[in-house]
Design a protein around this nucleic acid. Sequence first.
DNA 1: TGTACATCAGTGAACGCGCGTTCACTGATGTAC
DNA 2: TGTACATCAGTGAACGCGCGTTCACTGATGTAC
Lengths: 194, 194
Amino acid sequence: MRYSLEHKAWNHERILSVAARSFREHGGDTSGIGTVMNKVGLKKGGFYRHFKSKDDLFVEAVARALEETGRSMEEVARAAPEGQGMRAIVERYLSSGHANAPGSGCVRAALGPEMARKPVAVRRRIEMLLRAYRERLAPFMPGKTLEKRVENCGLLFSSMAGVLMMVRVMTNPQRREQTLIDARSMFLKCFADL
Amino acid sequence: MRYSLEHKAWNHERILSVAARSFREHGGDTSGIGTVMNKVGLKKGGFYRHFKSKDDLFVEAVARALEETGRSMEEVARAAPEGQGMRAIVERYLSSGHANAPGSGCVRAALGPEMARKPVAVRRRIEMLLRAYRERLAPFMPGKTLEKRVENCGLLFSSMAGVLMMVRVMTNPQRREQTLIDARSMFLKCFADL
DNA sequence: TGTACATCAGTGAACGCGCGTTCACTGATGTAC
DNA sequence: TGTACATCAGTGAACGCGCGTTCACTGATGTAC
């Protein structure tokens, strides 16, 4: 081969990383393959050596984003005092930092409706990723059974994604922050005793 | 004038109506001006006699959608027994019917991230529309003061939009319905005593 | 060890297409006289 | 009442542009002998 296997894996990684950020920042329809490839330092023609199609890249970028967010949430929950995992998650998710950095944030809040419009085949792959995410963070959720905790995990993150998404529409930083404060206390109160 | 004033107003209305549906169904970036105009029965060149730009149409379509959803929610809340307004709203919003009809549903769940990516000038206009919506439905919300009810209205609809959006990603109708049921009882429980 | 060949990541040009926007023009109507 | 003119919603063609995808080709490397 012309390039070593590590070389290819490395570029694959970089395309994914740039796409995951670009899609969340500007939307999937607005981020072109050409732009992504140029940012990586390659020409757009080379894209199809790495991915079957743009939708294929989309799914892998969603996977990457969910893995990152999931890891971040898990870390913050583990670092919290005993029994305060969910509080830590809510506070991290509904933070100004998260609201101001969609490119490295939760993919639900950035691409939710776009995911919903994808063909069934694409959505099925995304569903599996979302299930893995729910199960990963379920241990920190309230609920008597594991099943309940997984369910609550889904509801909590979907709801918070909606709030984050609408906070990002707001133009006034004070109002954004105040809404996040209100939302944090609302979610902590609501999900404390489920 | 070539056409009467009513004629122009009527076409303006129809462009808006088609766009509001098309944007919510396929996304703003994916619905072209040409497609919208053709669906109305006009050529795309005529678009600029009615709107300054596509972003201008976007804002007016959001306004139209929020007005429709707001009216529907207000109706359902008024029709409910005394004190059951919010319950009726939650049940209508988190219904299968709503989940299956994004084109005529809540614009937050369909275009939230897209709105968040618009330039500040556009977002400011949308903010005003959202405020009007919150104030319209605040009477049915829990909260000791009007201010609290308005705030809770914002949080409730943002959260529900997140859930609706993620339900639309799901491919299995049973799972969609079950998630909506779970979400309804969660929101009713949470927002009952705020 | 040296040579011939196969592999394949990346290139660059091309494909057809639809995008948002502009503009000279049309022609039916309303207005002025 | 009849005529001349102004208005302007809608047309159709053009603008430059970027899109996703395909493909013949390049050329450095790995493999086979």
